[in-house]
């Protein structure tokens, strides 16, 4: 394949991945990495390196819009970033120690969970809770707009959320993905933060988490300019288009279709990993 063909193909795939990632809320990385490795035969370490930088672009690019809507909670985000960045460094270290076969299998398992989430759809907003003692001391509670009025919320189980965030960071560093799904579970399910606040705060945190792995990724040579260039430009542009389309699209059908695609990628990734083909 010539450099021009390769760039155009990767750019197109990344554009679609970024769009789908934004529309379904699963992020572009989970699609781009398996397609690059399985369909184009790109070395997985280059694929996850390219995915990692595209994750920073998507997260940082979208942050301005989310902030204006007044959903994200900067105190919760910053506090939990201590956990995600430490986890990310551990994950990035592990990536250089683990074989690509093992990485492919772990990636496949993460895809299985993503497929499950897209079939299940967004959860009902959990019942509001009062902050517990630790969350009150950390002043984590806040308010967010619901139908024109500000609704206050409390926060629970900070240690539980913090621990899970360490795992989310490690997964992000290991696989070059945003691991937004795990971050949302940590906030929404474990810490009982409203879903909308959880998703926007998670998006805010993804860029900082990924930046913590980036230093090691550069050092290890995972950031290949000729792979990362079309992936970063494609995913970032696709995410921008996806966010605009989101208002007009029937997301539920799309999530289901996307779920099947991810499921197929998950199986292929695990089989290829076990068979030693990735």
């Amino acid at each position: 394949m010539t450099a021009l063909t390769f760039t155009v193909v990767v750019l197109t795939i990344s554009l679609l991945a970024g769009m789908l990632g934004a529309l379904t809320g699963l992020g572009g990385g989970v699609v781009v990495v398996p397609v690059l490795t399985l369909a184009l035969g790109v070395d997985m370490k280059y694929a996850i390196g390219a995915s990692l930088v595209s994750v920073i672009a998507t997260s940082s690019g979208a942050a301005a819009a989310y902030v204006r809507e007044g959903y994200s909670n900067i105190r919760i985000g910053m506090f939990l970033e201590i956990a995600t960045t430490m986890g990310a460094i551990l994950g990035a270290y592990l990536t250089s120690r683990v074989s690509t076969h093992a990485l492919a299998i772990v990636f496949g398992l993460v895809l299985l969970q993503a497929a499950y989430l897209s079939f299940k759809g967004a959860p009902e907003d959990a019942e509001r809770v009062e902050s517990d003692a630790l969350a009150r001391r950390l002043r984590m509670g806040g308010s967010y707009p619901v139908a024109g009025t500000l609704r206050t919320y409390g926060v629970r189980n900070v240690p539980g959320g913090f621990s899970l965030m360490f795992g989310a960071g490690a997964l992000s560093g290991l696989l070059g993905i945003g691991s937004g799904a795990v971050k949302v579970i940590a906030m929404d399910r474990v810490m009982r933060i409203p879903f909308k606040v959880s998703t926007t705060t998670s998006n805010f945190m993804i860029g900082v988490t990924a930046a913590a792995s980036a230093g090691l990724y550069f050092h290890n040579g995972y950031i290949n300019p000729h792979v990362a260039m079309p992936v970063m430009l494609g995913v970032a542009t696709g995410a921008l288009v996806g966010a605009k389309l989101l208002v007009h699209m029937h997301v539920k059908t799309l999530r289901t279709i996307f779920g099947f695609v991810i499921l197929a990628l998950a199986i292929e990734m695990i089989v290829s990993g076990i068979g030693g083909r990735v």
């Binding site: 990924a210 930046a211 300019p225 260039m229």
Partner: peptide
């Protein structure tokens, strides 16, 4: 290209 990607990595750090 790498310089542009490094700039990208630095944006969350600046944040």
């Amino acid at each position: 290209i790498q310089l542009g990607l490094l700039l990208l990595v630095l944006t969350p750090v600046a944040r």
